[in-house]
């Protein structure tokens, strides 16, 4: 394992900014390649006006609302598919299709159907949230050690009771892995959707930067997305640790 130094990744970040400054000075055309200080200034300005949070909030909302509905639904669907051959037979073709079609390819279709509305973006994120979590949940159910079910059975815990008390909790780690994958994928989808049609959000900011020849906007958008991703990932890890300590990585056998 690599041991983080006293300042952790600080040196790396510092080096990155130095290289960036040097490269920007070398290119010499701020219209193509802004210096780090320009981006910082832009960032400070947008923070002051609150515009940054507006866009960050818009993207965040487009992720959270449909995921909050879609992921639990996906978990239920996936567990049902893992439990019943019939349910699996019904939904498996759709799952395969969804899994092998890039969600981004569906954006124009969603915009055609719902217009440039929140509904279009919500529906895309919802769809990704459902099928990714469902696939993981199904895999989790399939991988529950047979012995665990036998252990429940011999203690008189049978059938549906064994399913809810052993199979579902056993597949929890797989479902949580699905949650992480789904949020990652949905960030991509929502940004692409914002680029193709929206008047707010980080994706919109990036596109506006390109259209207005304002590369600082592009950079701010990219940084915003990086921060959003980290927040999501850390946030999920923190939530598991805090609210579901039983399923924290440390506890897994």
């Amino acid at each position: 394992m690599i041991r983080p130094g006293r300042f952790g990744p600080l040196y790396g970040i510092l080096l990155f900014f130095i290289l960036w400054q040097v490269a920007a000075a070398f290119v010499g055309t701020p219209l193509l390649f802004p210096e780090p200080m320009d981006v910082m200034r832009g960032l400070a300005y947008m923070t002051e006006t609150g515009e940054l949070f507006e866009h960050l909030g818009a993207t965040l909302q487009r992720l959270l609302v449909p995921l909050a509905v879609g992921m639990p639904l996906g978990a239920v669907l996936g567990c049902a598919m893992g439990a019943s051959r019939d349910v699996n037979a019904w939904f498996d073709p759709y799952m395969r299709m969804a899994n092998s079609t890039p969600a981004i390819a569906l954006i124009p279709f969603a915009l055609l159907w719902f217009g440039v509305t929140e509904l279009a973006r919500y529906s895309l994120v919802f769809y990704v949230g459902v099928y990714v979590v469902a696939l993981n949940a199904r895999g989790g159910v399939a991988q529950v050690p047979r012995l665990r079910i036998k252990a429940a059975n011999t203690l008189g815990v049978l059938g549906a009771s064994a399913f809810f008390r052993v199979v579902v909790p056993s597949s929890f780690p797989a479902i949580l892995a699905g949650v992480r994958t789904a949020t990652g994928l949905c960030i991509m989808v929502v940004v692409a959707a914002e680029m193709l049609g929206a008047a707010s959000g980080l994706g919109y900011l990036i596109i506006r930067g390109r259209q207005n020849y304002d590369p600082t906007l592009i950079f701010i958008g990219i940084f915003g997305l990086g921060i959003l991703s980290i927040l999501f990932d850390r946030g999920i890890a923190f939530a598991i640790e805090r609210f579901m300590p039983r399923w924290s990585v440390r506890r897994r056998v």
Binding site: P145, L147, R148, K150, A151, N153, T154, L155, G156, L158, V166, P169, S170, F172, R246, W247, R251, R252, V253
Partner: peptide, 21 residues
């Protein structure tokens, strides 16, 4: 069928217990 009048103790120590409990 299986039942609590004949409880089995399994060999596989890794999987016999419920790790989240």
């Amino acid at each position: 069928g299986p039942g609590p009048d004949r409880v089995v103790i399994f060999q596989d120590i890794g999987n016999a217990l419920f790790p989240w409990l």
